[in-house]
Structure formats: structure tokens, C-alpha cells
Nucleic acid binder design. Structure first.
Lengths: 197, 197
DNA sequence: CGGCTAAAGCCAATACCGTTGCGTTAGCAC
DNA sequence: GTGCTAACGCAACGGTATTGGCTTTAGCCG
């Protein structure tokens, strides 16, 4: 059987509905606990029929995950450029903390983690971070400095911040600064071999 | 008003019911996603009336959180004692990864994170880790070695592991080893001041 | 512009969850 | 053993999420 290509309709109304749903989820996530976040509620807030949501996603968690990754992926933050790796790391650490530290973003993060099952090669919400880290490193090496690897920055700067936020551990700018300092120290010492993971 | 002390009944039947519920939650968590984990389901699996669960916890999330912290707190792991800080860190990193890397434990971790709302001074699932870290440090300093702080070990060894697991990022023993090596390097260099946070 | 049909809306039926009131069982203290 | 009552089991209720059938709207293509 020659299965005909299903022609998607992405424009006009569909786009409008989808956008309304996204913004509705965003609003509701910004307001309170995700516990009471149910499909009928989202539908009403979006001025959309619940059936549409059921048809398109089928499950709240799927919708939540989709919105969460969308929200966590598009951070238009520019990588800081202070002239030194230490300054860049510190500034960037503060930015990341500021970003994921807001209640809404924290809920998004938790929702995304909760929705996750099994192993996925790389989490979409870290992709942007990797790009940023790589940019910092590149600039640093262009200046002739010793720089840590992307993996090291992710593991020792981003992961602690994400972990703290996820666990609800209070974290302030000073903590971010210390993490940045530690990573910088790690770069200065080539102790752990090539470490180009 | 002399509020009479409510005499709890912890023995016999109550204990049996509670144990059945705990094991039921454990089984169900080991099987699949927590999405479909509802009170009636747990009750049926435990051979217990749903009312008992509602009365005692009132909410699934509370029950889940309680079981999760119970499961994540009681790790009877002995802190490894290899004779050197580097060896201890590496062995411990492997243990921790082995622990939280199992599907069941990972789901527990995710459930606990999802249940979290707002900021709490310290996450119960990290308390035991802190104790272990402190023990490692103590032994190390007794040998006259330079040791990192507890916070550093948590931030740079435990958090990356937890973060990776939570995000579903594939992690193997080699990754754990590298993290341990990095922390060790961090200890060797006193770059970031006293750092006794 | 007009036809085709994907996608949204509407409505009713269903299923399941959470809740409450009351009778029954069985710890704990004496 | 006996009494008291905490904790469990049972059953019925109310509400809300979910599903299916059908109609209506409006993208996309010629």
C-alpha cells in the first residue's frame, strides 16, 4: 500500500491554538504548583477545547515536557565576554543561576526531569549550555590561556547549579562564584590528564 | 486545654499495612513510569483498602516522597577506605553511581525532585552523602593530606552524578572516575582560598 | 475562487479518582 | 481478660478527567 503523505497544516488557526496552549501552560506554570495542572484547566485558560489537547498530546506530561524543553532551550543569552576566562565563567555562572533560579524556570526544569524516562544521549536543555561553554573555551584558548573542557564545565559548573536548584537547595551568587572559581582552578591544573572528553 | 496525647499504634496490623504499602510502591516504581501510579493502584497491589492510604497520607505525592526519601536515605554503604583520598573518592564515586543509576533508584530520585516545591535548607537524600564525604575528608586529613571541603565534594562529585542521572545522561564508571580525579585535583590546589563553606 | 480534508469544536457517555460516613477489627494499657 | 479507641475495611456519593461520534471551520493546493 502506498501510504499517502499526511499533509500537515501548521499555519493559521492551528498555530494560533498551539500558541494559546503554550502561553496558557506558561502562565499556569508561573502561578502555582504543577499538581493542579490538568488538561481541562489548560484548555479553559487557553480558550481551547480540551479535546484538541487530548488529540494532539494525549497526556499532560507530554505537553508539559514539550513546553518545558521549548522554554528551556530558547535562552537568547549571549555568552559573556569579560576578557578573561575567570571573569567569563563567573559572569556566566551568575547568568545560569539567575535563569534557572526563577520559580517558573525551576518548575519547568522539574517537569522536564519528571517526564524523562530511560536514557537519552543528551538532554535538550543542556545543548545550549554546551554551545555557550564551547564559546567561552574557544575565546579563552584564543588568548592563550589554559581552559577546561566542555564536559568539565558542564559537570562542575552547570550540573551543580542544576542539581542545587532541582533539590531546592538555597543557592546564591556567592555559590555560583565559588563554582566558577573551582572550575577555573581545575583548568589551571592539568592534573587529570588530557581530559578531552 | 490539656490536649490528650494521641496514643499511636505502631505494631501488628498497622505495621503490616504500612509495610505492604511501601513494598507495593517499591514494586510499582520498579516496573514503570510513576505517571500511572495512583492511590487505588497502590492500594490494590498492597492488598489494602485505598481509604487507609488517603487517611494516612492524603496525597499520592506525599506517599511517594516519603517512600522515596526512605529508600534514598537508608544506604548502608560503608565509606570506602582504600588508604588514599584519591582511591576513596574514586571508589565512593563508583558506589554512588551504582546506587542511583539503577532504574528504580533513578525513578525515586525523580519522584523526590518532582515532589519538591520551594526551597528547603537541605535535601534529606543528600544528608547521608554529606556524612560519607565528611568521613572521607577526616580520614584524609588524619593522614596529613590536603582534602577538599564537604561542599566541594557534594558540588563536584555528587551533584554531577545526580544531575546526569536525573537528566538521563548516560554515565559510566569512567565518568565517575574522572569526576573523582577532578575533585582530587581541586584538593591539591588551594586556589580558591579557604573555601570552607 | 473552489474543492479536499486536516484539524478544531461540540456534546454526550463513560470511567475512574478522591472523599466521606459508618461499622468492624485489633493494638495498647490496666 | 477487659475496656478504650486508633486504625482499617466497606460501600456509596460527587466530581472531574477522558474518550468517541459527529459537525463545523479553515489550511493548503490546483
Amino acid at each position: 500500500m502506498t501510504s499517502v503523505a499526511p499533509i500537515r497544516r501548521t499555519g493559521g488557526r492551528s498555530a494560533r491554538v498551539l500558541d494559546a496552549i503554550y502561553t496558557a501552560v506558561g502562565q499556569l506554570m508561573g502561578e502555582g504548583k504543577p499538581d493542579k495542572l490538568t488538561i481541562p484547566v489548560v484548555a479553559e485558560r487557553a480558550g481551547v477545547n480540551p479535546t484538541s489537547i487530548y488529540r494532539r498530546w494525549g497526556d499532560i506530561d507530554e505537553l508539559l515536557e514539550e513546553v518545558a524543553v521549548a522554554a528551556l532551550t530558547q535562552d537568547g543569552d549571549r555568552a559573556p565576554d569579560t576578557g578573561s576566562l575567570g571573569g567569563d565563567l563567573q559572569a556566566w555562572a551568575r547568568i545560569v543561576l539567575e535563569d534557572i533560579g526563577t520559580p517558573k524556570r525551576t518548575r519547568y526544569l522539574r517537569a522536564m526531569v519528571a517526564a524523562r524516562d530511560g536514557l537519552a544521549p543528551d538532554c535538550p536543555c543542556l545543548a545550549q549550555r554546551r554551545v555557550m561553554a564551547a564559546e567561552l573555551i574557544e575565546r579563552s584558548e584564543a588568548r592563550g590561556e589554559r581552559a577546561p573542557s566542555v564536559a568539565q564545565i558542564i559537570d562542575h559548573l552547570v550540573m551543580p547549579l542544576y542539581g542545587r536548584v532541582l533539590m531546592g537547595h538555597p543557592t546564591d551568587q556567592a555559590d555560583a562564584d565559588r563554582l566558577a572559581a573551582d572550575v577555573l582552578a581545575l583548568a589551571g591544573e592539568g592534573c587529570s590528564g588530557p581530559n578531552d572528553r
